[in-house]
Simulated scan of single mutants.
Amino acid sequence: MKQNKYDDPDFFAAYNQMPRSVGGLDAAGEWPALRALMPELKDKRLLDLGCGLGWHCRYALQMGAKSVIGIDLSDKMIARAKALTDDPAIEYRRMAIEDIDFEARQFDVVISSLALHYIERFDDVCRSVFEAVVPGGSFILSVEHPVFTARAAQDWHYGTKGERLHWPVDDYQQEGKRDTRFLGSDVVKYHRTAATLINTLIEAGFTIKKLSEPQPTEEALAAYPDMRDETRRPIFLLIAAEKS
């Protein structure tokens, strides 16, 4: 299923009010950890799967990337990314991640930020990326952490006074579709265990170089105090993989 919630006007409006939509990468709690996983980008050809508003595409160009292609299924996302970008070296295409069919060895680096938990067939995407990246090339991705996606509710357990007591984990081993709520809308996500995520990359031919389960930095916590509870359980899993 190719899900496109972001072209819903109400959903897109709500998304654009999120801190990361307003403040960009500096407002994304996981950004320092994701940036640390990236290889040298100078003179590299980069593909961004689920590019959203284009923050990572523009960062890659700032770091000297030779060319950047960002794809996203949402017309609204692509239009907004283009409006925020003023450089012909970045090309934005409306395309589903499931439909990528680039030339073999077309890219040096492929990234994907918080998009692949919306994709039903992660294995197909991994194989397509493996073909599209050069030997020695990198696949850097972030997804919602399996601890976060295990339960469809994706919410805390609250005390009698509304205080957040703990984050419940259940049905962890039961992989598959989760009917969740995000920004006031029904959204389909796909839960996979950490082992499945890692082994699927390995089976596609990648070597795992590093994992990260980041917490917000002290700077981010100072700027966005609401992030404090994000230090109590992992919300994101970041993976750096390399084509052997």
Rank of each mutant, 00 (worst) to 15 (best):
L47C: 02
I97V: 14
R181I: 10
G176E: 04
I235A: 08
Y118F: 03
V147C: 07
E213F: 03
I235T: 13
A83Y: 02
S67M: 01
L165W: 03
V169T: 07
C51K: 05
H117N: 02
A36P: 12
T85K: 01
R93V: 12
Y92K: 05
V134I: 12
L183S: 13
P234A: 06
D123S: 09
Y15F: 07
A150F: 01
P9N: 09
S128D: 15
D108W: 02
G205L: 05
A115G: 07
T196Q: 11
V147R: 10
T85V: 06
A96C: 09
L47A: 13
S74G: 03
E175P: 04
L116K: 01
E219A: 14
L165T: 10
D10V: 12
E120D: 15
A220P: 00
L221K: 03
F11M: 09
P214G: 06
P146V: 11
L41G: 09
K2P: 03
G23Y: 02
E30S: 08
G184V: 03
P216D: 09
K76P: 01
G162V: 07
L37W: 05
G176L: 04
D108P: 11
G29A: 14
R20G: 11
V133K: 09
H117K: 01
R127L: 13
A152V: 01
S112Q: 04
A241K: 02
P214F: 04
V133D: 10
R121S: 15
Y172Q: 11
Q17G: 14
D186C: 02
A28T: 13
G162L: 00
P146S: 10
Q174V: 14
K44N: 04
R20V: 14
I239L: 12
I119N: 14
M77V: 00
D8I: 10
D226I: 00
A195N: 09
A240P: 10
G137H: 01
L141K: 00
P234F: 04
L183G: 12
S112I: 06
P9H: 08
I140E: 07
D7L: 02
E163D: 07
Q174E: 15
A153V: 12
I100N: 10
L221N: 00
D75Y: 07
Y6R: 13
W156T: 05
D8T: 08
I69P: 00
Q17K: 15
Y224R: 06
A194T: 04
D7F: 00
F12Y: 04
D186Q: 10
I140W: 03
D124E: 15
Q17C: 13
G176I: 01
E203F: 06
R105C: 14
Y190K: 05
A194Y: 00
H166A: 15
C51Q: 04
M18D: 12
L46K: 03
D170S: 09
E213Q: 11
F148A: 09
T217H: 08
E91Q: 13
E175L: 02
K44T: 07
A104M: 09
A14F: 03
D170G: 11
R127K: 15
V187L: 11
N199P: 02
A36L: 08
S142M: 12
F11G: 09
R164D: 09
L41A: 14
Y15P: 04
G176T: 10
V109E: 10
P225W: 00
D86V: 07
S128H: 15
S67I: 00
A89D: 12
A28W: 08
S212E: 14
Y6A: 13
C57A: 09
V133A: 02
V68L: 11
F107Y: 08
K189H: 05
R80D: 01
Q17V: 13
A194L: 07
